[in-house]
Design a protein around this nucleic acid. Structure first.
Length: 581
DNA sequence: GCCCCTTTGAAGATG
DNA sequence: CATCTTCAAAGGGGC
C-alpha cells in the first residue's frame, strides 16, 4: 500500500501550504510577506483596475468582496512566491504532478472554477510552479534570470486550442510522463491516430527556440472556451513566475489561463459586444445579463479523482476503442479505474485532494450546496425508479446482488466475497454491482491487492479531512490489480459494464426484456446484463486489447445482445414515459 | 438547445 | 448515522 506522505508528494516545498501546515508557514513568514506588500498591492490594484475597466463588471456587484479572503489569498501567494524565489523558482519539483500555485486577486484572469473567470473578484489562478522547459539542464538559470516578459512574449505563442483538443487537459501535466523526453514532441501522446497528434502548441525553450517541447499545461495556452475580455496572456504570467513580477499585466483579448480543474462551460459573449440602445432590447439584455452573471458566478465543484482520471484517459479510450459516446467511454473508464493499481489510483486521489484544498482556499465560503439545483436536469430518484419498477414489474423487484448470484453461473455463493458486504461498511452509498461481484468471483485469488475505496489513498496521505479506510467495503475490493492477469481478460468478457445498482429497475427490467428463459450458460450469463460490443469490452482493459486491430463491429441488437448504453437509454425512456401521467 | 446517458467520488440533504 | 441526491466531465443522441 503506497504511503503517500507529504514527502512523497513533495508538496511541502513546492506547494503553498494547505490548511494546518499552511497556517504555520504563514505565521513563520509574516516578515517575508511585508517585503512583497508592494508587489501584492500593485498586482491587486492592477487587477482591480482592469476589472473595473470592464463595463460589465462595473454594474455587477463583486461576488466575493471579502477583503479578508483577498488579503489571505495574497498572503498565500506571497508565501508561495517567496518560497519559489528562495528555492529557485525553476528548480525541478520533486512532485512534478502538481506544478501549480495560486496567484490571488488577478481578478480578470480566468478563474479555475468559474464558468467564466472574467469576473471573479477574488479570483485566483493556478500557475505552474515550474515548467518542463526548466528541466532542461543549464536552462533554468538562464530562463529565470534572463528571460524578460517581452522575450517570452516572442517565444510563447498564444494558441487557441481547438475544441477537439480540449481533451489535452492540463492534467497531463500532472503526469510525470508528460514531461518525459518521450513525450517531448508535438504529438504529445504516444497514442497514435487521435487528435492528440494534432499540432500541439509548443513552448520554445528560450527566445532562441532551440528546443521545443509541448507545453504540458494546455490550459496555459489560451482556450477558446474561456473568452475573457481583458484576460492576460501567459506572457505576463511568465513574468510573474520568473520573479520579475511586473505589474504590467498584458491584457489580451482572447487569451486566458484556465486551470487544470477548470470548467469548460462556455459563457457566450455577445457577438455585438453588448446590448444595443433599444429599450426593448435592454430588457432582454438585462435578463440575459442576469443569466450571464449567474453563469459567471457559478463556481464549479472540484474534480474528484475519477474525474481527473477520466479527463486524462478519455482520449486514450477514444483512440483505442474508436468510440465517441461518452456513456460508453465512461463505462470503459469505470472499469479501467477499478483495474488501476492502487498507486495509480492514489495519484488521482492525491490530485483530487489537492484540488479540493485549492478550491477551498480559493473559495473559503463556497459550498457544493450553492450548485444544488443549478443544473436544470433532474434525475429520477431511486425511489422513483423503484416505484417504476414496481409499477412495471413487481415480481422483478429483488436485490441486485441476489439476482447476480442466482443467475450468474460462475457465482460462488459459498464464497464470502460473493456475498453482499457488511452493511456497516459503506464507503459508497451505492451497493455493489453485478459487475463488481463478477469481478470478485473471477479474481478473488489475491485479496491482499485489494482495491480500496477512495478513502484508502486519501487516508494514506494522512490528510486531515481524509475519511477512514473501509477495508470491509466493497465486494470488488478484493479485485486483484496486481497484474497477474488482465483484470478484464477473455474469461471476463463480456462483463456487464453497468454498475448502477441503484437503478435496479433498469437492470432487472432489461433482463426481463432481453433474457430468454432457459438454463443459464456462460454465454447467456454474459448476456443477461447489458454487454458491450466486443471491441468496447476489450477496451475495458487498460492493456492494449487484442481486438483493437479488428474493425469495430457492434453486434446487432438482438433479444439478448444490446449495448448497455442503448438498452439503458431505451429503457430509461420507456420508464420515463411510463412514469409520466 | 436542453437533457439524458454513463462512470466514480465528494459532499450536501434527508430521514 | 445511514442513506439518498446532486454535481463534477464528456459528447453523441433524442426530442
Amino acid at each position: 500500500m503506497p504511503q503517500l506522505s507529504g514527502d512523497d508528494l513533495g508538496a511541502n516545498d513546492e506547494l503553498i501550504p494547505f490548511k494546518d501546515e499552511g497556517e504555520l508557514e504563514e505565521k513563520r513568514s509574516v516578515s517575508a510577506h511585508r517585503d512583497l506588500d508592494d508587489v501584492k498591492s500593485s498586482l491587486v490594484n492592477e487587477s482591480e483596475t482592469i476589472s473595473s475597466s470592464d463595463s460589465e463588471t462595473d454594474r455587477r456587484p463583486k461576488p466575493r468582496p471579502d477583503l479578508e479572503n483577498r488579503a489571505r489569498h495574497s498572503q498565500l501567494f506571497e508565501e508561495a512566491l517567496r518560497r519559489q524565489q528562495d528555492a529557485g523558482l525553476f528548480q525541478p519539483s520533486p512532485y512534478m504532478g502538481y506544478p501549480f500555485f495560486m496567484i490571488p486577486d488577478l481578478g480578470n484572469l480566468c478563474n479555475p472554477y468559474l464558468t467564466n473567470g472574467a469576473l471573479a473578484s477574488s479570483a485566483q489562478m493556478y500557475l505552474p510552479f515550474q515548467w518542463p522547459v526548466l528541466d532542461v539542464p543549464g536552462r533554468s538559470a538562464a530562463v529565470r534570470d534572463a528571460v524578460s516578459p517581452a522575450q517570452l512574449s516572442n517565444s510563447v505563442p498564444v494558441v487557441q486550442r481547438p475544441p477537439h483538443m480540449s481533451h489535452l487537459h492540463p492534467l497531463l501535466s500532472y503526469s510525470p510522463e508528460a514531461f518525459s523526453p518521450q513525450r517531448a514532441s508535438p504529438g504529445f501522446s504516444p497514442d497514435a491516430g487521435v487528435s492528440r497528434t494534432l499540432p500541439t502548441p509548443c513552448y520554445p525553450m528560450s527566445p532562441g527556440g532551440m528546443t521545443q517541447i509541448p507545453h504540458p499545461l494546455g490550459w496555459l495556452q489560451g482556450q477558446s472556451m474561456y473568452p475573457i475580455a481583458g484576460g492576460f496572456s501567459p506572457v505576463a504570467l511568465s513574468s510573474l513566475m520568473s520573479g520579475g513580477f511586473s505589474p504590467r499585466l498584458v491584457p489580451t483579448p482572447q487569451s486566458s489561463i484556465p486551470h487544470p480543474a477548470i470548467v469548460s462551460t462556455v459563457v457566450k459573449q455577445e457577438p455585438g459586444g453588448g446590448c444595443s440602445s433599444s429599450q426593448h432590447e435592454n430588457v432582454k439584455c438585462d435578463a440575459a445579463q442576469e443569466k450571464e452573471d449567474d453563469k459567471r458566478n457559478y463556481v464549479k465543484k472540484p474534480l474528484n479523482a475519477f474525474m481527473l482520471y477520466m479527463r486524462e484517459e478519455r482520449p486514450k479510450v477514444v483512440a483505442q476503442c474508436k468510440v465517441k459516446e461518452s456513456a460508453t467511454i465512461n463505462q470503459i473508464l469505470g472499469q479501467r479505474w477499478h483495474s488501476l493499481s492502487k498507486d495509480d489510483q492514489s495519484k488521482y486521489y492525491d490530485l483530487a485532494r489537492k484540488e479540493r484544498l485549492l478550491h477551498s482556499k480559493l473559495y473559503p465560503g463556497w459550498s457544493a450546496r450553492e450548485n444544488y439545483g443549478k443544473k436544470k436536469k433532474r434525475k429520477r430518484t431511486k425511489s422513483e425508479t423503484e416505484q417504476m419498477a414496481d409499477d412495471l414489474s413487481p415480481q422483478l423487484k429483488r436485490p441486485c446482488v441476489s439476482t447476480a448470484a442466482d443467475e450468474t453461473p460462475h457465482t460462488h455463493p459459498h464464497t464470502p466475497l460473493a456475498h453482499p458486504p457488511p452493511q456497516t461498511a459503506h464507503a459508497h452509498s451505492r451497493p455493489h454491482t453485478v459487475s463488481h461481484l463478477t469481478h470478485t468471483h473471477l479474481s478473488q485469488a489475491s485479496p491482499a491487492s485489494s482495491l480500496d475505496s477512495p478513502a484508502t489513498p486519501t487516508t494514506s496521505l494522512a490528510s486531515p479531512g481524509a475519511p477512514a479506510p473501509t477495508h470491509t467495503d466493497h465486494a470488488h475490493s478484493s479485485f486483484s490489480h496486481s497484474g497477474h492477469m488482465s483484470p478484464y481478460g477473455e474469461q471476463l468478457q463480456p462483463l456487464p459494464l453497468t454498475t448502477k445498482p441503484h437503478r435496479p429497475a433498469h437492470l432487472l427490467i432489461h433482463r426481463a426484456a432481453t433474457v430468454t428463459p432457459g438454463p443459464s450458460t456462460p454465454s447467456s450469463s454474459s448476456s443477461d446484463t447489458p454487454a458491450l460490443s466486443p471491441l468496447t469490452a476489450a477496451c475495458r482493459s487498460p492493456l492494449p486489447p487484442p481486438l483493437l486491430s479488428q474493425p469495430f463491429l457492434a453486434p446487432p441488437p438482438t433479444s439478448t445482445h444490446q449495448s448497455a448504453a442503448s438498452s439503458h437509454g431505451a429503457l430509461a425512456q420507456l420508464l420515463r414515459r411510463a412514469h409520466q401521467p
